[in-house]
Each structure stands twice: as C-alpha cells, then as structure tokens.
Computed example of a mutant assay.
Amino acid sequence: MFELTVTYSKQGVQFGRLIGKFQAVRRQITILAGEVTAAKSIVINSKNKCRNLLFTSNPI
C-alpha cells in the first residue's frame, strides 16, 4: 500500500501540479515511511524471537 501511495503521489495531478509536490502530502508520506519501517522492524524482531524459542527451548 505504501508503494501505491508513493506512485500515486508521483503521477496524480491537482490544481495543475503533481500531488507529490505539495508539502503536506510529502510530510504525510515521510511519516508513513517511518511507520512502515518501524512496523517491518517489529515483525522481523518478533519472527526472530519466535524462531529462537522454537529451536532453543527444551521439550517437556
């Protein structure tokens, strides 16, 4: 979804200007990019913790 947003901001036109040229749109995309990066980090970290639990825990 993030990639679609960036693509649209580069192609969409409003008031005769590309949408991505508006400061408010650029700011929101920057915020979204940070949130996507943080979410990816959380998912990767969780995956690694689960993998470590599976392969290092002692069977009962």
Results as ranks from 00 to 15, higher is better:
7 T>C: 09
7 T>G: 14
7 T>H: 07
7 T>K: 12
7 T>L: 12
8 Y>F: 00
8 Y>E: 00
8 Y>Q: 03
9 S>C: 03
9 S>Q: 02
10 K>G: 10
10 K>Y: 07
10 K>H: 14
11 Q>N: 11
11 Q>D: 13
11 Q>Y: 04
12 G>M: 15
12 G>N: 06
12 G>E: 15
12 G>T: 09
12 G>P: 11
12 G>W: 03
12 G>R: 09
13 V>N: 04
13 V>P: 04
13 V>W: 02
14 Q>W: 11
14 Q>C: 15
14 Q>D: 10
14 Q>Y: 14
15 F>L: 06
15 F>A: 08
16 G>Y: 00
16 G>V: 00
16 G>F: 00
17 R>P: 14
17 R>A: 15
17 R>T: 11
17 R>S: 13
18 L>H: 13
18 L>C: 03
19 I>G: 05
19 I>Y: 01
20 G>I: 01
20 G>K: 00
20 G>S: 00
20 G>V: 00
21 K>R: 12
21 K>S: 14
21 K>Q: 14
21 K>P: 06
23 Q>R: 08
23 Q>F: 04
23 Q>P: 08
23 Q>H: 03
23 Q>M: 14
23 Q>Y: 12
24 A>W: 02
25 V>P: 07
25 V>Q: 02
25 V>K: 00
25 V>R: 01
25 V>A: 01
26 R>H: 02
26 R>W: 01
26 R>T: 05
26 R>Y: 02
26 R>G: 10
27 R>K: 03
27 R>C: 02
27 R>T: 07
28 Q>C: 11
28 Q>F: 04
28 Q>S: 07
28 Q>T: 09
29 I>N: 09
30 T>L: 11
30 T>N: 09
30 T>Y: 05
31 I>A: 14
31 I>V: 08
32 L>H: 07
32 L>T: 10
32 L>P: 06
32 L>C: 06
32 L>V: 05
32 L>E: 06
33 A>T: 13
33 A>H: 06
33 A>Y: 10
33 A>I: 03
33 A>F: 08
34 G>K: 01
35 E>N: 11
35 E>C: 14
35 E>P: 07
36 V>P: 04
37 T>P: 03
37 T>W: 02
38 A>C: 04
38 A>D: 04
38 A>F: 07
38 A>S: 11
38 A>K: 10
38 A>N: 12
39 A>M: 15
39 A>W: 06
39 A>G: 02
40 K>A: 13
40 K>F: 08
41 S>M: 03
41 S>N: 15
42 I>F: 10
42 I>E: 14
44 I>A: 10
44 I>F: 05
44 I>G: 11
44 I>K: 07
45 N>A: 15
45 N>K: 10
45 N>T: 13
45 N>C: 11
46 S>T: 11
46 S>M: 15
47 K>D: 15
47 K>N: 15
47 K>F: 08
47 K>T: 14
47 K>W: 11
47 K>Y: 10
48 N>W: 04
48 N>R: 10
48 N>P: 14
48 N>V: 09
48 N>F: 05
49 K>F: 04
49 K>M: 13
49 K>T: 13
49 K>W: 08
49 K>C: 02
49 K>G: 12
49 K>Q: 12
49 K>A: 08
